[in-house]
Design a protein around this nucleic acid. Structure first.
Length: 427
RNA sequence: GGAGGAAUGGCCGAGCGGUUUAAGGCGGCGGUCUUGAAAACCGUUGAUGGGGAAACUCAUCCGGGGGUUCGAAUCCCUCUUCCUCCGCCA
C-alpha cells in the first residue's frame, strides 16, 4: 500500500509501472476526490480553531460572572457544522484507503516484464534429475503401497485435499521439519518462533491477504479469527505498530507451522496426491531489514532455502517471476522448483519474495536510526521449505526398484532409519 | 464463565470538566567542564494531517469506537487488552 502523499506525487509513474503487471489504474475521480477531501479538512480545522478560542473566552467571562448564553449558542452551531465536516472527511478518507489498499506492489526494475508463468526466467539450475533403470512411480501410488500415506481415510474424516500419514511417513514429515529448522537456526542465523495458527483480520490486512483475497482463507465462524495460510502472516505482524531500533536489523525469523488454504479456484489443479492440500506444513523464513539491506538479504534468504535442497540431494531450478505472475504484495519473487519424477517436471517448493515497504506500510512496521525519523522497514519472506512437497520429492526421487525409499544421508539422524520399507500396519 | 482493578509520549509516571499549551523523572540528542570518559550542570525532545517557497502556523492524537458539553485525558455508554481473586480445564 502507498501513502497518500507518495501516491499523489507519483501517480503517473506508479500507474505506468503497474501496467506491466497487467493492472489498469483509473485516474478518474482521484484528483477531484483529493480536492474535496482537502477542502473539507480546511473548513473543519478553521472552525475548530474558532471554537477553541471561543471556549477559552467563555471560561474567562464565566469567571467574571458574565452571562455567556449567546456564545454558547454560537458554539453549538459551530459544533454541528464541525460534526458534519468530520463525517465528510472520514468518508473521503475511507474511500482513499480502499483505493490505495487495492493497488498491488510495484515490481523492481530487475523483474522481467511478462504476462504469465510462461514468461518467468530461469536464473539457475542445480543437480541433475536421476536416470531411472525402472519406471519411477508417483507418490500417490508409492505412499499407499508403502503403507505410509492414506488419502481416502483422510477424505472420509475430513474431506478432499486432506491426508493422513502413518509410521515412517509421519516421521519423515516431522524429521524434515526438525532438519530444516535446525539448519536455518544453527547455520543461517535465524531465530525460531512458534506463532499462533489463528490470526485476526488486521494481521491479514498487514500482509496483503485482506481485503482482496479473503476467499483463499478459512474463517472461524462467529469471530474475527482466520486460519493462517502461511506463517508469514503471524510472524510479519509480530512488530505491527512498533518502531524498531535500526541496530537490531536485520531480524531473521524461522517458523514451522501448519498452513491452511481454501484453494478456491484451483479445482482441477494438482488433484492427485498431496501436492495441493487444504492443510500442509511449512517452514517459513521471514526477515525485517532496512531498505538498503533488503535486496542482499532477499538473495541470501533464497540461497538459504536452496541450501536445504542441496543438503537433501534434490535437483532443483530457480526462476524469477515475471511482472504478470507475481503475487499482489511482492516487488520481486524467486520460485524454487524441485524435480519430481512422478510429474516428470519441476514443481514449486518455495517462493521467496521481497515486499520492500509494501507490507510495512500496511502493518505500520517502522525502524529508527540514531537521529533520523522513523521510516518503514522492508520485509522479505520465503518457504524454507514446504514440508509436504519436500516429502513428495524425497519419496519420488529416492525410490528404489524394490519399492522401498532410501532416506537421504542428512535425514538419517532424524529418522533413525536408512530406508522406508513396506509397513504392515496399514491395510 | 463470575467479581473487582487498570490502560497517559521511546519507557516510567502525575493529572480526574476551563492557565494541561499533558507536570516530573528515565532514556535520547546538543552543549559546559575534562587529556578522554563518567559524574554534575544547562538546553532540547513524539506522531499524523492541513496551509505555506520557507521561517512558521493551524488541527488532531491520553487503549479502540460512540455520547454528554460552548469546552473532555478528566463525566457517561460500549468494545478490546492486561492484572488480581473465584470457577472450569489441556
Amino acid at each position: 500500500m502507498y501513502d497518500l502523499a507518495f501516491f499523489r506525487a507519483n501517480f503517473d509513474s506508479v500507474s505506468a509501472r503497474l501496467a506491466t503487471r497487467g493492472n489498469q489504474l483509473s485516474l478518474e475521480g482521484f484528483r477531484e476526490l483529493d480536492q474535496r477531501r482537502r477542502a473539507a479538512i480546511q473548513e473543519a480545522e478553521e472552525l475548530k480553531a474558532k471554537r477553541n478560542a471561543s471556549s477559552m473566552e467563555i471560561a474567562k467571562l464565566r469567571k467574571q460572572g458574565v452571562d455567556t448564553a449567546d456564545a454558547q449558542q454560537a458554539g453549538r452551531a459551530m459544533g454541528e457544522r464541525i460534526g458534519f465536516l468530520d463525517e465528510q472527511v472520514n468518508k473521503l478518507e475511507d474511500e482513499f484507503r480502499e483505493l490505495l489498499a487495492g493497488i498491488p506492489n510495484l515490481p523492481q526494475e530487475s523483474v522481467p516484464v511478462g504476462r504469465s508463468e510462461e514468461d518467468n526466467v530461469e536464473v539457475r539450475r542445480c543437480g541433475t534429475p536421476r536416470e531411472f533403470t525402472f519406471a519411477p512411480k508417483a507418490h500417490w501410488d508409492l505412499g499407499p503401497e508403502l503403507g505410509i500415506l492414506d488419502m481416502e481415510r483422510a477424505a472420509k474424516i475430513t474431506g478432499a485435499r486432506f491426508t493422513a500419514y502413518f509410521g515412517l511417513g509421519a516421521k519423515l514429515e516431522r524429521a524434515l521439519t526438525n532438519f530444516m529448522v535446525d539448519v536455518h537456526t544453527r547455520e543461517h542465523g535465524y531465530t525460531e518462533v512458534l506463532p499462533p495458527f489463528l490470526v485476526n483480520s488486521a494481521s491479514l490486512f498487514g500482509t496483503g491477504n485482506l481485503p482482496k483475497f479473503g476467499d483463499d482463507l478459512f474463517k472461524i465462524e462467529k469471530s474475527d479469527l482466520w486460519l493462517i495460510p502461511t506463517a508469514e502472516v503471524p510472524v510479519t505482524n509480530l512488530f505491527r505498530d512498533e518502531v524498531l531500533d535500526a541496530a537490531r536489523l536485520p531480524i531473521r525469523f524461522c517458523a514451522a507451522t501448519s498452513c491452511f488454504r481454501s484453494e478456491a479456484g484451483s479445482y482441477g489443479r494438482d488433484v492427485r496426491g498431496v501436492i495441493r492440500q487444504h492443510q500442509f506444513q511449512k517452514v517459513e523464513l521471514v526477515k525485517f531489514t532496512t531498505p538498503e539491506q533488503s535486496n542482499e538479504e532477499h538473495e541470501k534468504l533464497t540461497a538459504d532455502a536452496e541450501d536445504i535442497l542441496l543438503r537433501l540431494g534434490l535437483p532443483f531450478r530457480t526462476v524469477v517471476l515475471c511482472t504478470g505472475d507475481m503475487s499482489f504484495s511482492s516487488a520481486k519473487t524467486y520460485d524454487i522448483e524441485v524435480w519430481l519424477p512422478g510429474q516428470n517436471g519441476y514443481k514449486e517448493i518455495s517462493s521467496c519474495s521481497n515486499f520492500e515497504a509494501f507490507q510495512a506500510r500496511r502493518a505500520n512496521l517502522r525502524f529508527k536510526g540514531g537521529k533520523g525519523k522513523a521510516e518503514h522497514l522492508h520485509t522479505i519472506n520465503g518457504s524454507g521449505l514446504a514440508i509436504g512437497r519436500t516429502w513428495v520429492a524425497i519419496i519420488e526421487n529416492y525410490q528404489q526398484e524394490d519399492g522401498s525409499v532410501l532416506v537421504p544421508e542428512a535425514l538419517r539422524p532424524y529418522m533413525n532409519a536408512e530406508r522406508i520399507e513396506k509397513s504392515g500396519e496399514l491395510r
